[in-house]
Structure formats: structure tokens, C-alpha cells
């Protein structure tokens, strides 16, 4: 008995160690980028357009490009993804073949690597539909990639709406859509917002699919038919082609800071959401 307890203690220590290793890995990655990148960040770096392929100047056009692409993708994916979630939770029966099929495809879609989406966007949007390397091609590709996240979180949020709410609304004579619109969606909104925040994180970090669909032009994008370069693609090219290590650190700094903020917001909205339920 005593020996077994001793052994338990030892093994406990190993479990604690594995937790510590994870924390150490995370803190050293985030800390390293923040410390090395901080000195590069200035207003000029953020607000000047890149010159000489990014070796000089700032990263302004890539910030705008990222913003454009993210907004466009959300504009498409949020209504469609939420609509799909409403249909699956409120209209379709769970046992229906169709609902099962949609759930299966959503899961499959979530597991497909981004490079495959890139190939698809390239052959279908860039070449076949002749949209070229553009914000539109990249935005549509990105929208497809974030659809599963948006739908899944919306589904989970809708699932938590108490059945009484629906029954009361329907009993008051509201139609099904009115109930969805006025009762279910407001209740599920924090959950849906969590999905949107997570999708923004994915959009900011996406690289492989966007190189193949949005291109890597450093010019200021004006219309959705212009090509653009996102911050992540910029970071990749700066580092890989050895253009400017300093500016690569600055870009990585900005990306990490955004991701940390997004993560914080997602946590916050999730907590709000679970509080609202009680």
C-alpha cells in the first residue's frame, strides 16, 4: 500500500510536468515573438505601405488586405452558416438523411487541410470563373473554410435555447420564423458571436489557401477584383525569402497580438454565454 502510494506520487509529478511543458512551450513562443517584435512596431510600421518587396516601409497594405478578406469572408459565411444551423436545429428532423449528411459534410469540411481549399479555389474561382488572384477569390475560399466553425457553434448555441421559450412564443401565435427571429436567435447570439470571433482568428492566420487564391501583390487593394497579400502571407515571404527579418518579427508581433486579443474575446463571450444560460 505504502509503495503504491509512493509510486502514485511520482507519477503525479510526471503529470504535473507534462502540464508545465505545455505552458513553457506556449509562453516561450508568444514571449519570444512579443519581445523581439515589440521594438519594430511603430506608427510608421503600421501605417506606411511596404517598399522594395517589404524590405523597407511598413505593412499597411497587408493589414488592409487582411481586413478586406476577413470581412468579405464573414459577410458570406455568417448568414449562410447561421442559416444552415437554424435549418438543422429547428426545421430538419435529426434523424433525416439530409441532416445527417450535412453534419457529416460539415465535419469533413472542417478536417480538410487548407492547401486543398487553396487548390480548389485556384482551379474553380481563379481559373474557371476567371476571377483571377483577387480578394473575391480569396474571400470565397476563406468563407468556405470558416463555414463549419460558424455552423457548429451556432448549432450548439441554438441547442441551448430552452424548449419552453419556443413553446411560449408559438403559443402566443408567433409563426415559426418569427419565433426563430425574435426568440431563438437573440438567445443564441452570444454563442454565434463566439463562432464569428473564432473564425476571424482563422482568417487572420490563413496562409496556404490565400497564396493560391488572393495572390501576393503588395499594392493597395481598391476593389474586390484586386489581388492582395495578407499579413500572414507577408510574414511567410519576408522570412522565407530572407527579405527582412526585422519586419518579419514586427508582422509576427501584430499577428500574435491579434490572436491573443481574439482568444480573450472568444473566452469572454463564451463565459457570458454560459452565464446567460443560468
Amino acid at each position: 500500500m505504502g509503495a503504491a502510494k509512493m509510486k502514485d506520487k511520482l507519477i503525479y509529478a510526471l503529470f504535473w510536468l507534462s502540464g508545465l511543458i505545455i505552458v513553457a512551450i506556449l509562453l516561450s513562443i508568444v514571449g519570444y515573438v512579443l519581445i523581439k517584435g515589440f521594438s519594430v512596431i511603430s506608427l510608421d510600421f503600421l501605417l506606411q505601405s511596404p517598399r522594395k518587396a517589404g524590405a523597407e516601409g511598413g505593412i499597411f497594405t497587408t493589414v488592409i488586405g487582411t481586413l478586406y478578406l476577413t470581412l468579405l469572408a464573414l459577410l458570406m459565411a455568417v448568414p449562410i452558416g447561421t442559416g444552415a444551423a437554424i435549418y438543422l436545429q429547428e426545421y430538419a428532423s435529426d434523424q433525416s438523411r439530409f441532416a445527417r449528411m450535412v453534419n457529416l459534410t460539415a465535419e469533413t469540411l472542417a478536417g480538410i487541410p487548407s492547401i486543398i481549399f487553396g487548390l480548389f479555389g485556384f482551379v474553380f474561382l481563379v481559373i474557371l470563373l476567371n476571377l483571377g488572384w483577387s480578394i473575391l477569390s480569396g474571400g470565397i475560399t476563406l468563407a468556405i473554410m470558416i463555414l463549419p466553425t460558424i455552423t457548429r457553434t451556432a448549432q450548439e448555441a441554438i441547442l441551448t435555447v430552452p424548449v419552453e421559450y419556443r413553446e411560449n412564443s408559438l403559443a402566443l401565435g408567433a409563426s415559426k420564423w418569427q419565433t426563430t427571429q425574435k426568440v431563438i436567435l437573440p438567445f443564441a447570439l452570444p454563442g454565434i458571436i463566439t463562432g464569428v470571433i473564432l473564425s476571424i482568428g482563422r482568417a487572420i492566420g490563413e496562409t496556404a489557401a490565400l497564396i493560391l487564391t488572393a495572390g501576393s501583390s503588395l499594392g493597395m487593394p481598391l476593389s474586390v477584383f484586386d489581388p492582395t497579400r495578407t499579413m500572414s502571407v507577408h510574414l511567410y515571404l519576408l522570412a522565407m525569402e530572407g527579405i527582412s527579418l526585422e519586419r518579419a518579427f514586427g508582422t509576427a508581433f501584430l499577428v500574435i497580438v491579434l490572436i491573443v486579443i481574439i482568444n480573450f474575446l472568444a473566452n469572454l463571450s463564451m463565459r457570458r454565454f454560459s452565464q446567460a444560460m443560468h
Binding site: 508568444v30 473564432l198 496562409t207 500572414s232 510574414l235 511567410y236 490572436i259 482568444n263
Partner: peptide, 15 residues
């Protein structure tokens, strides 16, 4: 923290 680790983009890991 692990969710944050999951959220860091692959290009940052590569860097």
C-alpha cells in the same frame, strides 16, 4: 492556454 496554442497561425510556428 491550449486554446491559444491552437489559435496561433501555422506561419508563426514556421517562423
Amino acid at each position: 492556454l491550449i486554446n491559444l496554442l491552437a489559435g496561433i497561425p501555422s506561419v508563426v510556428y514556421g517562423f
